[in-house]
Write a protein that binds this DNA or RNA. Sequence first.
RNA 1: GGAGGAGUGCCCGAGUGGCUAAAGGGGACGGACUGUAAAUCCGUUGGCUAAGCCUACGUUGGUUCGAAUCCAACCUCCUCCA
Length: 423
Amino acid sequence: MNQTVVNTTNAFRPKSEALQLLIDRGFMHQTTDLEALDAKMVEGPITAYAGFDATADSLHVGHLLPLMAMRWMQKLGHKPILLVGGGTTRIGDPSFRTESRPMLDDTQIAHNLAGISKTVERLFDLSEGEGRIVNNAEWLDEFRFLEFLRDFGSNFTVNRMLTFDSVRSRLEAQQPLTVLEFCYMMLQAVDFVELSKRFDCSLQIGGSDQWGNIVNGVDLGRRAGKQLFGLTLPLLTTAGGSKMGKTAQGAVWLNSDRLTVFGFWQFWRNTADADVARFMKLFTDLPLSEINRLAELKGAEMNEAKKILATQVTGIVHGLDAAQSAMEQGEALFAGNVESSEPTHVMPLARLATRIGLLELMVDTGFANSNSEARRLVRSGAVRINNTLVMEEDRAISEGDISAGDRLVIAVGKRRKALIAFK
RNA sequence: GGAGGAGUGCCCGAGUGGCUAAAGGGGACGGACUGUAAAUCCGUUGGCUAAGCCUACGUUGGUUCGAAUCCAACCUCCUCCA
C-alpha cells in the first residue's frame, strides 16, 4: 500500500490529548502514520473532516459514530469540517453494497442536505473559524471531464483501484459495478485534497468501510505535496453480534420528524447490558470515571445506567429539554402515571370522532409497517390499550378509551409504548 | 467472437410444470421466563376493504387448463475456448 503506514493502536501512547481520548473511548480502528499525526496534533490545532452522503433527509445512528469523533476533536481544540456529499450523492458510493444506490435528483439532494444540516448544527459549533459544513458539489460540479482526467487521472491506476476491498467485494459478489460508481473513490480522494487546499484540512475520519477511499485521498495528497492522514472507526455491532442501529421499523433516525424523540430515547434505553459501557464511551460526553462507575452496577440496577445513557445521547442529538422530557415520558409510560407527562404523539380529535381503527393507529404511530403486521401483533397478544390486552383485530378506538381528558396509552410488546393525546 | 453455467423473499440458500406466498438457516418481531437485559423454549415473518383477493422467484414476451419451474429475446455475472 505504497508508503502509507498503518498502525494498530495497541501500543502507541500519543501525546495529543484528542488522539488519546479517541483511543481511550474506543473510537480508533486504523490510522495512517499515527506518530506523524500525533506530532502534528501536538503542534497545534488541525482541521479534520468526515463526509456524509445526502441519500436521505436525515442521518441515522450509524452516522453518530463519526459525528461524535468529530465532536471530540472540536472540543479538544481542532476544527471540524462536516462534508455533505451533494456532488457525490449523484453517483453513489458502491462500497460494500451489492446493488447500486439509486441516483437522486438535485431537488431531492437539496432537501436532504437541509435535513442533515439540522442535526449537524446541533452537534457542532459552526461559528466563524470554529467549524463548517461544506458541500462537495461546490467543486465537483465545476470540473470538466477532460480537465479532471488530466489533473487527476494519471494519479490513479486501475490496477490498484481493483485491489480495494470495496471494489473487489462487489466484483466477487458477481454484481455489476458501473464506471460511474467505480469513479466514486477518485472523487472522495479529490474531496480530501480539495479540502486540504481550501481549509488546510489534514485528517479524514470515517467508518472502517471507508479505509480504501481514505487511503486513496492520502496518497493523492502526497502526490500533491501534502501530508494527509486518515483515521477509521470500528464497525459497530451489538453484543448480539448484529449491526447496530437496525430495528424492525427501520433505521434509527436522528431527525425527530422521522423518529420521535421518545422513540430515539427508547432505542438507547433498550441497549443490552453488555453494550452499555461501550456505548456510553462512544455516544455520550460522560467522563470515563463516571462510565466505569456505572458499569459496575449489578443486575436490575443496570437499568439506571441505561436511562442515563439514553438521556445523555438524546440530549446531544435532540437537546437537553427534549431528552429530559423523553425520560419523563419513559417513566410515565412504564410506571403508569399518564396525566403528568407530555404525550409522545398528538393526533387530531377528529380522528377519534371517525372511530379510528386500532390497526390504523398502530401504523400511524409507527408500531407496525402495515395493517397486516399490526393484525399479526394483535393476534399474538402483543397489544394493550391502557394496559388492557386487546385481541380483537377490528377493534376501534372510541371516547371510552380516553382517560385524563385526552390520553390513550398503547403498548406493543413490552418495550414499545406510546402516549397519545387527542387534541 | 464461440461453448457452458448462474440470477429466488430483509440476507444466505433449497426448489426445476399444479400439493409453492415458495423447504432450511440467519436476522427481526411477538409470547413465556426476567430487569423495558442476556441465555433458553415457543410462535410469527409480502400486501389488502382478509375464510376471499392481489402482487412476487433478473427484464420482456410466449407455450400451457395451470410456470419460480418449459421456450425466445434482452440485461448482469461466472467458467472454458478464440
